[in-house]
Amino acid sequence: MGAGGSRARQNAMRSGVVVLGAVAFGYLSFRVGFKPYLDQAQEAIDSSHDPAAAVASDDSGADLPREGVADPAPSKDPAVVLRD
């Protein structure tokens, strides 16, 4: 029985290594594939927490009405409601 248990342990360890490798590969593929979107999201988060960036973006004429563009519906998100 000693040889059978050793063989099962080797197979379990090999399976664990393969699973960890697959998870690492999937994570890296996700990071590389979605990098532009993740960068845009990070910039949006950073600019929403930076008061200087908010003031700079307000000077761009965002308060002026745009022709043919309706105002977006008010958000139901509590964070947006509290921020406004």
Rank of each mutant, 00 (worst) to 15 (best):
R7E: 13
K35E: 09
A8R: 14
G16H: 04
G16I: 04
Q40H: 05
Q40V: 07
V18W: 04
A24Y: 04
G61H: 08
D77S: 09
G21A: 12
D39K: 04
G21L: 04
V18L: 12
E43W: 11
F30S: 04
E43K: 11
V32G: 07
E67V: 03
D77P: 03
G4Q: 09
A8P: 00
S6E: 10
G26K: 06
D59V: 05
R83P: 01
G61F: 06
V80R: 12
L64S: 03
G26N: 04
L20K: 10
G21I: 07
L20Q: 10
V69P: 01
A70P: 00
A53T: 08
A44C: 03
G61A: 02
P51I: 07
P78E: 10
S47G: 05
A24L: 13
S15D: 11
D63W: 12
Q40T: 06
I45W: 09
V32D: 08
L64M: 09
K76D: 07
S75R: 08
R83V: 05
S57M: 03
G21N: 08
G21M: 07
H49G: 04
P51M: 09
P74D: 04
E43R: 14
A62F: 11
M13N: 07
R83W: 08
F30K: 06
V19K: 12
A41K: 14
V17L: 11
V32R: 12
R9W: 01
Q42D: 12
A70S: 12
A73T: 12
V69Y: 02
D59E: 12
A54Y: 02
G16V: 00
S60V: 06
M1P: 04
G4C: 04
E43V: 07
S48G: 05
G33I: 02
R31I: 11
R9Q: 11
D84N: 15
F30M: 10
V23F: 13
D63V: 06
S47Q: 14
A8D: 06
A62G: 10
L82K: 15
G16R: 02
G16F: 01
K35P: 01
V17S: 08
N11T: 12
A54P: 02
L38I: 11
P65M: 08
V55L: 10
D77L: 13
D71L: 13
Y37R: 15
D77R: 10
R66S: 07
E43P: 02
A12C: 09
M1N: 08
A62Q: 13
A70I: 02
V32S: 11
A62Y: 13
P36L: 01
P72E: 09
V19F: 06
S29V: 09
M1R: 14
D58V: 02
G68T: 03
S57Q: 15
L64F: 00
G26H: 05
D63E: 15
A54V: 11
M1L: 13
V81S: 08
V23Y: 05
A3H: 15
V17F: 09
D63N: 14
R14M: 01
S75M: 03
V19P: 00
L28I: 09
Q10D: 15
G4W: 00
R83G: 04
A12R: 11
D39C: 03
F34W: 07
